[in-house]
Each structure stands twice: as structure tokens, then as C-alpha cells.
Amino acid sequence: MRIDYHTHHVRCGHASGDLEEYVVKGIEIGLTQLGLSDHMPLLHVDPETYLPGMAMPMDELPRYVEEAFRLQQKYKDQIDIRVGLEGDYIEGWEKQIEEIIRAYPWDYVIGSVHFLGEWDITDYRQTDGWKERDAYAVYEQYYDAVVKACRTGFYDYIGHIDVIKRFGFKPDRNVEHLENMALEAVKAANMAIELNASGLRMPVQEMFPSRRMLEYALKLGIPVTLGSDAHQPERLAQYLDEASALLQDVGFTDLATFKVRNRQNVPIGFE
């Protein structure tokens, strides 16, 4: 079983390649399951005045879903396509997020925290935001948002749970208790997390989450899935061999997969 559940496409504004290019690439490299999971449209900032290329326009969302399910049928004899959404958690916008999630028959929804207010902590164009903030306070706010995302019941798993470290900005105080708090919230919500391999190509040069967090997730009995977070077709499944090896070294034997919002564990298949 070879899977990649985290991918982005041209509709989101900051990726290249259409959905079918990813499907064809997935078949070429021998994926068993391919998750299509583009970003939810922006809700809390004006896309006309905010930085360009943050997410798909709202009127593209139904087209994305329609195309994804069409491709699922077209290629059903060659690859198992799962149709998902990376649904940002934005505090104060829970009602609008829930409306989007309930409007479509997703196979899975990723709960990711990118925004703290109007600041996207994952955007390389916004790293100056760290200069005016205390790093520990940012980590506290971030992990508090992850906990609140878990409590909504909207999501099937948390994406790149420690992505706050992406650009290498870290407090001078230990944050393990914040990380553990987030993982405990995942467990309490009966959710999974992903091992997102894209961190290896980021300034932090470490997957999301860290090995320490994976070890605590295993101790808690939290299921884990795999995602490359590819934004170009050629990066599909990038570093997932290394991610699979890390999971097995930590002690995981299964991966979480999702269909019509139901989770099923399958043996780890990357080698």
C-alpha cells in the first residue's frame, strides 16, 4: 500500500499542475491511493486585497470537487483516488468552515492551522511577522488553535501539526508541553495526524512532526497517515520513502487511510 494524502494543484494559486497531471503521475510512480486535498477558499481575509495566490476562489470549489470525483471514476481501475480538502481552522469562523465541509461528500478533511488571525505563519512572504512577536507566545497561540481545531469535530486528521517550526523560528524555552497538549487533543478527538514529509525541503529541514512527537503519538495510540504536500506533480510522494522508514523505526506498523470520512488502517507499504 503506497499512499500520498496531501497534494495541491493549480487552483490554489500557489501550486502548478492540474488534478489529472497528479493522477497520471501517481499511476506512473505506483501509488495505490492518491489523496486530492486542495486548500479551502479564504474566508476571513479579502482575497482581492490580501497577498495573491493563497487559496482557490470560492467559485472554484464546486468545480474542484466535480473534477476530482470525475477523475476518481475515470481512473478507478488504475489508482484509488480519495477526494479531500485541507480545511483551515480559523478561530471565530467555525460556522463558515463547517458549512463548506458539510456541503460536499469528502473522503477526508485535513485540519490545518496556517493563520493566526490574518497572519499566515506558513507563508514565506510573511516571516517579518516574527520580528514583532515573542516566539514563545506565537507557539502558545498556534498550539491553542490546533487544540481548538481538534475540538470542532470537523476534521479527520491534523495536517503538519508542528508546522509552526517551518522557517526555523523557535522560542528559547521548551515547548514540548505545548506539542504534547496538541497530540492529547488529537487523541481525545479520536483523530489521526499526518507525517508530512515536505519539511525536509523547508528551512527547518525536518518533517512535520518531529520524531519526538511521533514517539509520543505512538505512545498515545494516535494513527498516522502520509503526505508529501506536493505543490508540483513531480514532487508527488517526495520523501515518503524516508517518512515510511522513520515511522517504522519509531514503531508504527500501519497507516491511516480514509474513505467517506471513515478511517481504516493498512500496513505501511513504502520501502
Rank of each mutant, 00 (worst) to 15 (best):
L19R: 05
D77W: 10
D156K: 00
D120H: 04
G13I: 06
Y157I: 01
Y89T: 06
M54E: 14
F154Q: 01
Y143P: 00
E132F: 14
Y124W: 13
Y22M: 02
V147N: 02
L36F: 12
S210K: 05
I3G: 01
K165R: 15
T32W: 09
I101H: 09
L51I: 14
R166P: 00
I29C: 10
L85T: 05
V266Q: 12
L246F: 13
K131D: 15
Y75I: 06
E206W: 08
F167M: 08
L61A: 08
K74H: 01
K25M: 13
R211T: 12
V163H: 00
Y155D: 02
I193G: 02
I222F: 06
V163S: 07
D18I: 11
C12D: 15
D120V: 04
E21L: 04
Y108A: 06
I29G: 05
Q248E: 15
Y216H: 14
V266H: 08
G159A: 09
F69H: 03
I79V: 14
V83C: 02
M213L: 12
Y124K: 12
M202F: 09
G168P: 04
V10M: 10
T257R: 02
Y124E: 14
Y22K: 01
M1A: 13
K148D: 02
P209K: 05
K131R: 14
A15N: 07
A145M: 05
K131W: 13
D144P: 02
F115L: 06
R235V: 00
D59E: 15
K170I: 08
A217Y: 06
P223A: 07
I161F: 07
D38L: 01
K131S: 12
G92K: 08
E21N: 12
Y108P: 05
M207F: 11
I164D: 00
E67C: 11
D144H: 12
H14Y: 06
Y108K: 03
L31K: 07
K259C: 11
S244P: 03
W106C: 00
Y157C: 01
K259Q: 15
I161E: 03
D156C: 01
E66S: 15
A137S: 14
N180M: 05
R166H: 08
A217W: 04
V224C: 09
A182R: 08
D18G: 13
N196P: 10
D4H: 10
E194D: 15
Y50V: 06
Q72L: 05
E28C: 08
Y22D: 04
I29H: 09
V266N: 06
I121Y: 02
K148Y: 08
H160R: 03
Q96A: 14
S37L: 06
L214T: 01
F258H: 04
M58F: 12
P105E: 10
L218V: 09
T253W: 07
R173C: 07
Q78E: 14
R261T: 13
L195E: 07
T225F: 02
Q78M: 12
D4C: 12
D18C: 12
K187I: 03
R173V: 12
V224A: 04
G84Q: 06
P203H: 10
A237E: 03
I97S: 07
Q96S: 13
A192E: 00
D18Q: 08
A197H: 02
L240A: 06
E28W: 11
R263D: 05
Q33T: 15
V146T: 11
H177Y: 10
Q232L: 14
S228P: 11
L71A: 01
D4F: 12
D172Q: 14
P62R: 13
F252W: 08
